[in-house]
Design a binder for these strands. Structure first.
Lengths: 199, 199
DNA sequence: GAGTTAACCTAACACTGTTCGGTTAGTCGG
DNA sequence: CCGACTAACCGAACAGTGTTAGGTTAACTC
């Protein structure tokens, strides 16, 4: 196929198709050839719109994080922290399969820095020292990312025989998968509330 | 080379060589061919001792986590939580490059479950309900894994120009890389203390 | 000493991300 | 209107990945 009359590809179309694949097949399920195939195109054609796969993933990550809202600090810094964390978690858990990518490396994403700047400023305004503000922001991110990884409650088998005898205190762990989502949310809320209250 | 008089390979040698590569070159720096080369062997030979690369990584992860100590709950459950979290973090931060692998999937690792069982039991003994115990354990893991990812303080540039003007509250963020390790530890301790105090 | 097993090898398969050079449709200058 | 040029795609290839099949020979067992 030569140059088509109306372009088949665009950065946006590529990004959203890639995110759909990630959501459906996981992070490892995304390959450039598969992505191209779903767009009705050959793999090489993608590189006219995207520099590298890593860059594509970064762009997707940024767009996922762009929905995070850090407003709400005017009322109360505790409430601001809680809202910010909830918003972060909502963004991440709407596309959980991309979280391992975020976990990989030095981010330095524009969006993250901007939000972090606001968060830091709000904490300093509330009376915390700069160093304390940095550590509190870090702690909040620990809880958010830790809960978003959720290799915790989703990592349980649903076969009771896997636990009985060997792990006496986990004798009902096989019920976890059924309530994993709810339990993850409640665990996050508990951790967040305890953290903020304990500051 | 036919069968050598004394075997060149063993599961242990393979595991420790692989972990050394991961520590040195990162998770992506480990390939079966490279691992084989460092052991003076061809890649295919590894598969006589290791089922798959994924299994190898799981075994390595288990051995890293095997140093975690969950004793210390006799004294006080708060102290027990703190010691457990510190021990976990120590294990993870001694081999930080394998943490992204842990972040990937349903773990269900023998070691983790065993430790989780003890933790859960200790919390129930201390008077928490089973559900609360589960959530508290999850919250603790959030902080441990979140801090071990450390895509936070290690993700900052050391060039002041990257922050000035654009991020007014982060005007000293360029200093972070120099104190990243210490700051990460302090942030972890702060988050842990706040979390436990807030329960 | 024969037969079996264990430990290595070479070669290959089906993938991966990415690049090079080609082909053609659309667009712009004269 | 037509030539030059660019934009958007394709086919083929490269170097790398995890993994398997089948071969070769040393060491062990009876």
């Amino acid at each position: 196929m030569p140059r088509p009359s109306t372009p088949l590809l665009s950065s946006d179309r590529i990004r959203s198709a890639a995110l759909a694949i990630i959501d459906r097949d996981g992070l490892d399920g995304l390959s450039m050839r598969k992505l191209a195939a779903e767009l009705g195109v050959q793999a090489a054609s993608l590189y006219g719109h995207v520099r590298t796969k890593d860059q594509l993933l970064n762009d997707i990550a940024s767009s996922v994080l762009s929905t995070v809202d850090v407003s709400g600090f005017e009322v109360d810094w505790r409430e601001g922290l809680i809202r910010c964390a909830r918003s972060y978690r909502a963004a991440l858990s709407s596309h959980p399969n991309i979280v391992p990518f975020l976990a990989y490396g030095p981010a330095g994403r524009e969006e993250s820095l901007q939000r972090l700047d606001l968060l830091h400023g709000a904490l300093v305004d509330a009376g915390w020292s700069r160093r304390e503000a940095t550590m509190i922001a870090a702690g909040l991110m620990y809880i958010v990312f830790g809960s978003a990884l959720s290799s915790f409650s989703s990592g349980f088998s649903s076969d009771p025989a896997d636990y009985t005898d060997r792990y006496p205190h986990l004798d009902r762990a096989h019920l976890l998968p059924g309530v994993a989502r709810e339990l993850d949310r409640d665990s996050f809320e508990l951790a967040l509330a305890a953290f903020v209250r304990g500051l």
